[in-house]
Design a protein around this nucleic acid. Sequence first.
RNA 1: GGAGGGUUAGCGAAGUGGUCAAACGCGGCAGACUGUAAAUCUGUUCCUUCGGGUUCCAUGGUCCGAAUCCAUGACCCUCCA
Length: 374
Amino acid sequence: MGKIKYTLIKTEGKTKARLGKLKTNYGEYDTPMFMPVGTQATVKTLSVEELKSLNAGIILSNTYHLWLRPGENIIDHAGGLHKFMNWNGPILTDSGGFQVFSLAKPKDISEEGVKFKNHLNGDTLFLTPEKSIEIQNKLDSDIAMSFDECPPASASHEYLENSIKRTIRWAKRGKEAHKNENQSLFGIIQGGPYEDLRKYSAIETVKLGFDGYSIGGVANDGESTEDMYKAIDYSIPYMPEDKVRYLMGVGEPRDIIEGVIRGVDIFDCVLPTRLARHGHAFTKYGKINLKNAKYKEDFSPVDSNCDCYTCKNYTKAYIKHLINADETLGARLLSIHNIRFLIKLTEDLREAIKNDNIMEYRDIFMRDYYGENK
RNA sequence: GGAGGGUUAGCGAAGUGGUCAAACGCGGCAGACUGUAAAUCUGUUCCUUCGGGUUCCAUGGUCCGAAUCCAUGACCCUCCA
């Protein structure tokens, strides 16, 4: 048991795409990798057996949500998050940084920490970098994230400059508060789409010395895809080669591919499970909406190219019926498929890196999925 | 046999003289969703060649004007015999 260890195996011939290995407390995993999100200590609608069957590696959980419910002490008493949720694979906990964006107002953010309105009962709460790390230590996840401010896409250069500096000070405080020797701690690079800010944030964060680094603030509320790629391109050059690189919150297939090409190793996203609950499915030929009337009598699988349990056993017509009837099995079957789709995408990307033909892979994928040649 | 109440768009249900092609809910049809306050949210839902046309059980009437008032009929419900 100990810290996570990243080993770079090779870099793809013509791009920055990296093939790597991640040694964790719960086994070794290949990167690039997609990590399903299970905010409340559950990947919504899925059992851990189902997750395993998808070849999932690391899964995510969330400090803020588990802090409120059931409380970190209960999870501690249960023997940690792995035991509590019966997941014997690696877990990464987000720090609550995203909730700074989604629940707090700018005026609630101070040097000391962030004032939240408890979304369950309206109580006023205060989360600090130290508190976030302390909670994550107790949750006993394998990877803890630094507590950062995740500013909205509309934030100005001036606002962002102050914000990233504070986030760096918070990262330092969090690192000093971090006590769990079996838990890795990652730093987060912010700075919006600005080259100078990303550079500054990356250099200063790396100076503090973390076990891995992530790029944040690219998938909050309508950042353009262009700005996301800028954020990656401006951050990557300053991120160490021997540490894993994590692009937070990204899961649109195009963005995973573009992220990998730019040198990102791991991704997480709520998209596959949320889309599933809303009746949508990723397929080789683009995203489809099972609610559409045209699938009423379509007795073919969601994606005939897919190897998942759902595609091997169920038809579009049946899943459409389940979604329309508001039956939870529909959401579950589509969650299985959508997560598998993204994990399979990363498996294919690893293969393409091995074969030094990731650009060709991208072009074919884009043509099939988006019907374009980008 | 007597006394009341009712009939509104696919369904349920508001509306009781003009601002009504008719609230709202459901259902239907689409769209959005990127570190999950998200099994949520948004749009649309009589026909249309977008000028307009035809509607509120049916027919007739009053009125400048009717889903709304009057008459008759049909059907439904409740209570009394």
